[in-house]
Design a binder for these strands. Sequence first.
DNA 1: GCGATCGT
DNA 2: ACGATCGC
Length: 62
Amino acid sequence: MPACTKSVKVRTPSGKEVELVPKKVWQLSPKGRKGVKVGLFQDPETGKYFRAKVPDDYPICG
DNA sequence: GCGATCGT
DNA sequence: ACGATCGC
């Protein structure tokens, strides 16, 4: 798996809209449905990890 | 509810 | 073992 490079605009748990590079991105979808891509992020403010949707065209990485 | 993932 | 992610 390649590392994630491109940043994503996400809402941090602290409520700020910031551009972050995900630690990992994967597809989350039930059988027969499209689902969403999810990224694992770390809030630079608090250090807390959180998950957020990433754009459908974002590469699977991690 | 389903799906994968991993920090907590 | 559970939460939380999103849209269908």
